[in-house]
Design a protein around this nucleic acid. Structure first.
Length: 474
DNA sequence: ATGTGC
């Protein structure tokens, strides 16, 4: 549901909300008392503000816990749209004793990873059939059973990739025995927080603790997953900032590999468990929150934080392993000397501790000063590598993509009616024909407008433009 | 997004 601004103002007034608009920023406030300090939404000029998404956002802005703690500020990125409960593209800062598990949901530490490779695009096109043939068996898997030692899982859960690398050297698994661990270790510095968050084995769900045969049943490590997740080959089409591009190892004309996935089944379990737990832990006799949003306060908030980090560490390894699989195939096809260095790996679905706040980012990516920011378009539109500018007023956050413009069912309807949904020149490899339709370029908003408004508002600055060549979808 | 659902 969308409305024009005038109708929006009217509609909001009825809900006792006031709205003002300065340039591209909507400022929403609750009339009267107890309003949160600030709710702002950044939108390109010709974008409509989605009423459902706004309603969801305001519910989170008003979240409270009877024992204390509070939401301090709320922002929405230009790819903002409604989700099932939480709007996608939402950033919340809260006091450090207050976390809302539902504000992150189940796709914990979902994020983007970008590698580049010095491979001539004409050569890549020539060898593409061979590469695809090899990668089909690697990437089009819904599940897999990696032979990873329990001790490696434990190290990963507790200490993330730093712990995992130490352990995996002692207990190599399958194909990874041939991985270049020095390179993997060096690349940790190009991962958000070194891919190493403070988690704990005690929060691993039952599916990820040793069974009677002393094995861990894990079916989703090194898999892409569904929905908008992908592994994509791209062409580095244009550079906007030569100095920064050079510093990050980028060159015009390079091949790039972009990976979008998260913590899969593990994040689902942790997210569901803690969203439930927050409800169960609601103080006796206190009125349930109307919007069904249950924050955690105090010790439980800390416990959630380490459980969430446990799943986040898994997501970090998931992206690393997918990249490693692609790197191995690239070397088989184009030569063992191809490095395919990591540019950056960052989450867009996570709670972080920043100064005296918890910052919840749901479909929003950190954009601290100097930090690489990855903003994917769609399989028919370019993706952008940006640099964060550390815009405090916008909670140091940028959009995590173009944003979905049309719901899935509408894409199927348009396709049935023979409408152009942008799949004309798309090279998408998937076992699910439905996926191509749901994820068609026509389902997404205008990435250039989304990126430009963030540049104009001092959130990010452009570094490089990446054009899609071939997308693998789960 | 996703444990797959009766």
């Amino acid at each position: 549901m969308t409305t024009s601004f005038k109708r929006l103002v009217k509609a909001l007034n009825k809900q006792n909300l006031s709205v003002t608009k300065a340039n591209s920023v909507y400022q929403i406030a609750k009339k009267g008392k107890n309003s949160v300090s600030s709710v702002q939404i950044l939108l390109p000029e010709h974008f409509d503000l989605d009423g459902k998404a706004l309603k969801q956002l305001m519910s989170f802005a008003e979240a409270y816990h009877p024992n204390g703690g509070a939401v301090k500020a709320v922002r929405a990125t230009p790819d903002f749209h409604a989700g099932s409960l939480v709007p996608v593209g939402a950033v919340l800062s809260t006091t450090k004793d207050f976390i809302i598990p539902q504000a992150i949901g189940t796709d914990i530490h979902c994020g983007m990873r970008l590698h580049v490779a010095d491979i001539d695009i004409a050569l890549w096109q020539e060898k593409k059939p061979l590469l695809v043939e090899k990668l089909r068996g690697d990437l089009l898997l819904g599940s897999r059973d990696l032979p990873m030692a329990i001790s490696s899982f434990a190290a990963l859960f507790q200490n993330g990739l730093l712990g995992w690398i130490d352990e995996i050297k002692k207990h190599p698994m399958g194909d990874l025995q041939t991985a270049d661990f020095n390179q993997l270790e060096n690349e940790l510095e190009s991962i958000f927080e070194y891919g190493s968050l403070q988690g704990s084995c005690k929060w691993a769900p039952e599916s990820h603790t040793a069974d009677k045969r002393n094995r861990i049943r894990d079916a989703s490590l090194a898999t892409i997953g569904g929905g908008n997740h992908f592994v994509e080959f791209q062409y580095l089409e244009d550079i906007a900032d030569n100095k920064q591009a050079f510093a990050w190892g980028l060159r015009k004309g390079q091949l790039s590999v972009m990976i979008h996935t998260g913590s899969r089944a593990l994040g689902l379990h942790v997210g569901n468990y803690w969203s439930d737990k927050a409800k169960r832990a609601w103080p006796n006799g206190k009125k349930f929150p109307e919007a069904g949003i249950f924050p955690l306060y105090g010790e439980l908030a800390n416990d959630y934080f380490s459980a969430m980090n446990t799943a986040a560490n898994y997501a970090n390894l998931n992206r690393l392993l997918l990249a490693e699989i692609v790197r191995r195939r690239i070397r088989e096809v184009f030569g063992a000397n191809i490095e395919m260095p990591l540019v950056y790996d960052a989450p867009h679905n996570i709670v972080t501790q920043e100064s005296d706040c918890y910052v919840h980012r749901k479909g929003a990516t950190p954009a601290h000063a100097g930090q690489p920011v990855l903003i994917p378009g769609s399989m028919g539109h370019p993706s952008y590598l940006m640099m964060g500018l550390g815009n405090q007023a916008f909670l140091c956050s940028a959009s995590h993509g173009a944003g979905r413009a049309k719901p899935r069912h509408e894409m199927f309807r348009l396709n049935r009616d023979g409408k152009d949904i942008g799949l004309g020149c798309i090279d998408c490899i998937t076992l699910k024909e439905d996926r191509r339709i749901e994820e068609a370029p026509g389902a997404y908003k205008d990435i250039n407008a989304v990126v430009d408004v963030q540049i104009q508002n001092g959130i990010v600055s452009p570094v490089a433009k990446l054009a899609p060549l071939l997308t693998f979808k789960g």
